[in-house]
Design a protein around this nucleic acid. Structure first.
Lengths: 263, 263
DNA sequence: CAGTGGTCTAGACCACTGG
DNA sequence: CAGTGGTCTAGACCACTGC
């Protein structure tokens, strides 16, 4: 009944390749299923927050056992692409109703209460369409001079300006972005990207440095020029490791700290 | 034959508790098995780098199916406590022959090659027994004034001093620690802790800030006083979330950066 | 070749959710 | 109550390692 562990649809390299040099490994069935589900996810077959079909349904659809589908979904859940809820179903992950409000913001107030200091106040300083400088273009996988949206803003916690950041977004995906959208949306910016532009951020990489605030930066953050700040350069990705955002943030670390867990 | 999913040895809360308020949830069999394996790990039944019994053996020992043992080990592997090697066995994780040299050091050279810039040169500035200040004691779960070992050192990459750090270790566990040990050991310091003191670091938490180098710090790192540096405060833990090290590092970020992945 | 972890199946039953 | 994810089993076979 079930397909034996040979090839499967257009999934990865399974079975034996003919004239290919260096036999391209072996792809287990559940990996192929995972790839297929991922493709449906990318194609938008199920929207963020929606339930995907039950394990039984997917098992029938792909003609494999429930256990195999289960293992595929396990991996997707481990990567935060879907969320399992016992008794209800498996849902496409979203930044909207995230268990913790800010999934990618690791800046924590020094005094206990995680991000329970309430949502940040957002002040949008700029929101304009510009031509991508070389470094921005490189990070976003564009060509220098391509259109990008640039947003500059300050986030304040409890009235204290704490984060100054520049955000660059591919012009093609974020055509009608306005300062009002950036300011008015309730919830994480990444949630707005999902709702307003259908852009789903899945993963990010950060490079962190320490640097001294220049005059302009100091003014925005209301600190003395020369104050050491945390410089956080983040590239965010959708599926397939495609970059969709470059964000350069400056964090004040006199009342907050960047928290990381190693294992 | 196999034990039905009720209680199990001294493992977590399974089955129904009697007069306990708020029924203490339900603990699946594989979680209980995981706990048992963990206890053997803690007890040192198998040393770092050694193989633990095969899944079949463990299944027989605990009178459960291989699949259940498998799921328990899966979680231990996900937490980097053990390493699976197909065709060979499952091994107790170690810092010695880690696939990547430094598991907890996220500082990367700006120019590509990960930590392939060779091992750091270690200069030990101090290595002494002191009484724990209040903050150090708190972080290590000791009482103020308890004996701790303090090590101060500078790590250089390619001749450039890059990291200045203070390390505090509980005096009870690290009795005979010498500067020579800190300097001479080939490989990660955490590997030396395993070999020389039987202390196995499993997890760590970091708080990161930006600050300006004072005169002494600037001298050690050969930068101008006031240069912004990354301040990384790390608490490392063994099993059971027991703290075994406090480390305060200052990183130069003119040639390196702290790299982090978010998902 | 035997032994290990890795995959896959089929079926039973449990815990949780909602109508 | 039916439907969902979660656990557990038993057994078959595969891929990899080392002798």
């Amino acid at each position: 009944m079930a397909a034996t562990p040979t090839s499967f649809a257009e999934a990865g390299t399974a079975g034996t390749e003919a004239a290919g040099q260096a036999a391209p490994a072996f792809s287990p069935l559940y990996q192929q299923i995972k790839t297929l589900i991922l493709q449906s996810l990318e194609a938008g077959e199920w929207k963020p927050g929606e339930a995907i079909p039950s394990e039984m349904d997917l098992a029938a659809r792909f003609r494999v056992s429930q256990g195999t589908v289960r293992k595929a979904i396990d991996e997707l859940a481990a990567e935060n692409l879907v969320v399992r809820r016992q008794g209800k179903g498996t849902y496409v992950a979203t930044h909207s109703e995230q268990h913790v409000r800010y999934r990618f913001l690791k800046l924590m107030p020094d005094s206990g209460d995680q991000a329970s200091e309430g949502p940040a106040d957002r002040a949008i300083l700029e929101c304009k369409r510009v031509r991508a400088p070389a470094d921005v273009a490189r990070a976003l996988g564009l060509r220098t001079g391509d259109a990008v949206m640039q947003v500059r803003r300050v986030l304040s916690f409890g009235g204290v300006p704490t984060i100054l950041e520049d955000i660059w977004l591919p012009g093609s995906s974020f055509k009608g972005l306005t300062a009002h959208q950036m300011a008015a949306y309730k919830g994480p910016t990444y949630a707005m990207f999902e709702v307003e532009f259908g852009v789903r951020t899945v993963r990010a990489e950060e490079k962190i440095r320490a640097l001294a605030a220049d005059r302009a930066q100091a003014t925005h953050l209301k600190v003395a020029p020369g104050t050491p700040l945390l410089s956080v350069e983040r590239v965010a990705f959708t599926y397939n490791d495609q970059p969709v955002e470059l964000r350069r943030g400056l964090y004040r670390t006199d009342t907050h700290h960047y928290r990381n867990e190693l294992s």
